[in-house]
């Protein structure tokens, strides 16, 4: 029994550590998907470049927590906007397939920038937030887990407030429900798309602060994290901030549980099989991609 508790505690700890990052990635994914029906293959590269920029910042100056958060927000916003202007912003009139492939090209391009500027070796982003390890009774969250979770929960809360209460948030939601009707009401879909990319950039930057100290930043980490974000977003169902975030946390927990109960060999196979299953479940009943 003691061993079972220990297993459970460990699952929760390592599951939530990455689960929070998946959750942040999933939030970015679903923001962009909802506003523009575009699946952004380069989401992981947003995280990568923001993380690397923060890394350079920590090397150059002494960074306190507030400054780090502000820097992450600015950097993420800028990166997201830059990604928008080089992909969707350039290809309104192209077929959705070309837009999708453009994000693939963007992912390569950004990776190339990362290689040129920061090299190929993994870099360790220091812990920027002074959040201690938590242990209550048998439960235990390591410092990294606690920091990731705090950041992810705060981001999700702020995002849901933003979407519900502010004018811009409402504009994004309007465009995501019906682009044409929103335009008739004077909401510019273009601005909403750009804003959703920029916000996705901010969540990715926070994700990089969460994942950097745990696993380091390396030029080829983007695709894997982006994919997990996509699985998490599909798990959460795309329609509510909290559900999407929960999708990430659950994916992290499932993965950790799979490693503990089966083996790491099967983890990837099973989590991708899960993705296919989920996509099918989510789409049953809806015969075709709905038309706006």
């Amino acid at each position: 029994m003691a061993s079972f508790t220990a297993y459970a505690v460990q699952t929760v700890n390592s599951g939530l550590a990455l689960g929070s990052v998946y959750g942040l990635m999933a939030l970015g994914f679903s923001l962009i998907y909802n506003s523009s029906r575009l699946i952004n293959f380069a989401q992981g590269e947003l995280l990568l470049l923001c993380g690397l920029t923060l890394y350079s910042l920590t090397q150059a100056v002494q960074v306190n927590p507030i400054f780090a958060l502000a820097a992450a927000a600015v950097c993420g916003y800028g990166a997201g906007f830059a990604m928008y202007s080089t992909t969707l912003g350039l290809s309104f009139r192209s077929s959705p397939l070309r837009q999708l492939m453009l994000t693939v090209a963007a992912s390569l391009t950004w990776q190339g920038v990362a290689i040129l500027v920061w090299g190929k070796k993994p870099l360790l982003l220091p812990r920027l937030l002074p959040i201690p390890a938590v242990s209550a009774g048998p439960f235990y969250l390591s410092a990294d887990t606690a920091a990731s979770l705090t950041m992810a929960l705060t981001a999700a809360a702020l995002l849901s407030l933003f979407l519900a209460k502010t004018r811009y948030g409402r504009a994004i939601r309007a465009v995501s429900m019906n682009s044409l009707a929103a335009r008739l009401q004077g909401v510019s879909p273009t601005n909403a798309h750009a804003l959703s990319f920029a916000l996705a950039g901010v969540t990715a930057a926070l994700g990089s602060m969460a994942v950097g100290p745990q696993t380091m930043l390396r030029f080829d980490m983007g695709l894997g994290l982006g994919l997990k974000g996509f699985v998490a977003a599909s798990l959460g169902g795309y329609d509510s901030v909290w559900k999407v975030f929960a999708g990430g946390a659950i994916l992290g927990l499932i993965e950790a549980a799979l490693v503990l109960t089966f083996s790491a060999e099967l983890k990837e196979t099973l989590s991708y099989a899960l993705l296919i299953g989920l996509l099918l479940l989510a789409k049953t009943g809806r015969s075709c991609p709905e038309k706006a």
């Binding site: 998907y33 575009l38 699946i39 099967l266 099989a273 993705l275 996509l279 099918l280 991609p289």
Partner: peptide, 28 residues
């Protein structure tokens, strides 16, 4: 067959998962 009803991006992701599963099976 079962994937037919998925939309563009979702189908891309599902088939991407097929490839990843194949790679992982080869490794296992």
């Amino acid at each position: 067959r079962p994937l037919e009803k998925l939309g563009e991006g979702f189908l891309a992701m599902a088939t991407l998962a097929v490839t990843l599963i194949f790679t992982n099976l080869i490794l296992s």
